[in-house]
Nucleic acid binder design. Structure first.
Lengths: 210, 210
DNA sequence: AATATTGGAAAGTGATACTCTCCAAAAGTC
DNA sequence: GACTTTTGGAGAGTATCACTTTCCAATATT
């Protein structure tokens, strides 16, 4: 198919497709003469993946590029792809106090979690705890424990549900579920909060949202 | 204190404070003469809250403004403040298919959740499910159930841990825990995924992250 | 008197993610 | 074979966001 058909099938403007090609997010089509290139199903899939990561997952294009390069690197172990996917889902500017870092390390050790000693997620978690401290609302240890147990259920379920097909399938599923599971979980949490709040205050919201 | 002292205590540049004042994120100080204004502890707190929401919570300034106006609106019921806080944590561009909306409504009804009939979080959840469908990785109903149960634990714990002090305290705590709990939960989920993956593949990541 | 600081406003900056305009080569149409 | 349309490619332009810089004249401080 030509670029116009690719645009039609994915609802992405031709100009945007050209931009993604320039930016190296989408592999070039098969060149046919000097002013023509042919695209196929793989481009449709890739384009849909890009849009989903950007629109639903909220990733920047730079992050999407990181994710895609991990997906495309055939040599990567599956466990390592998870790490690469995670790398793309974190903010890059990270710093945490030694205290909160120690708290995180102790927490993970207590629960016997096997996590890379210098995983950046430890720092990210610690920096989020620091932010809560700074605004004068430190996270209650009991609440943190609830979060941890809930996260354990989710993480176990995530990994258990990864498909066992070809490498390409598993890798893409890993990336997709990690990136797009986040908005699902956050929306469910808010709905659960509304439910819990309704029971506690015995009220139902009547006003429209902001 | 003058603006320079406010800047010193919060590590926010004077120019940025002036910008927040112009944008209405920070209330004006008490004017003392034509070229001088006095600020106090409330400005320090507010400024720290803004930075935490922006840096750790990832909110845009427009969202922060929404949150703050809900916090400041004395008339709001507590249950309603939760709704206002939620409104500020969602993307604003939302659309979902009728199928996924029906799936969400059925799910919530099955579990007896008391959620506002036209809560935008229903639509957000549905649109995230749509995105997963579109990339060819529809969310397994069993996995969605795991997510829902985990979210229920978290939502219940969140609401149970809200402080019962003055209105202002409770409102701020609600906003803070809702906004800053998200990065905590997502970091924990990734750590849990690493743990589960380490057990499944019996591997420990050796390569540094991207 | 000299220097520094303030509030306020306007203009400038850098990043992000497109979107538009232009081009000449090629393909399709009559 | 003339005419219209489409293509790939590149560059410039646009909109938004979150500042940051520059300027000002009016005070404060030394």
């Amino acid at each position: 198919m030509w670029i116009a058909e690719l645009s039609r099938q994915t609802d992405v403007p031709v100009a945007t497709i050209k931009y993604y090609l320039r930016e190296g997010l989408l592999p070039a089509g098969e060149a046919v003469g000097a002013t023509r290139a042919r695209y196929d199903e793989s481009h449709v899939r890739r384009l849909r993946l890009i849009r989903a990561l950007v629109e639903a997952g909220g990733l920047t294009l730079a992050r999407v590029r990181d994710v895609l390069s991990a997906v495309d690197e055939e040599s990567r172990e599956l466990h390592d792809v998870l790490g690469a996917a995670h790398g793309a889902l974190r903010p890059d500017k990270l710093e945490a106090t030694d205290e909160s870092l120690a708290r995180v390390n102790e927490l993970l050790a207590d629960h016997g979690w096997r996590v890379d000693e210098d995983s950046l997620d430890r720092v990210l978690l610690a920096s989020a705890l620091d932010a809560l401290d700074r605004v004068g609302h430190p996270l209650d240890p009991l609440l943190l424990d609830s979060y941890l147990m809930a996260a354990e259920q989710v993480g176990d379920a995530d990994v258990a549900h990864l498909p066992t097909g070809t490498r390409a399938e598993t890798v893409e599923a890993t990336v997709v579920i990690t990136a797009l599971g986040a908005p699902v979980l956050l929306a469910l949490r808010r709905l659960a909060q509304q439910n819990a709040s309704a029971h506690r205050y015995n009220a139902v919201r009547t006003r429209p949202c902001l």
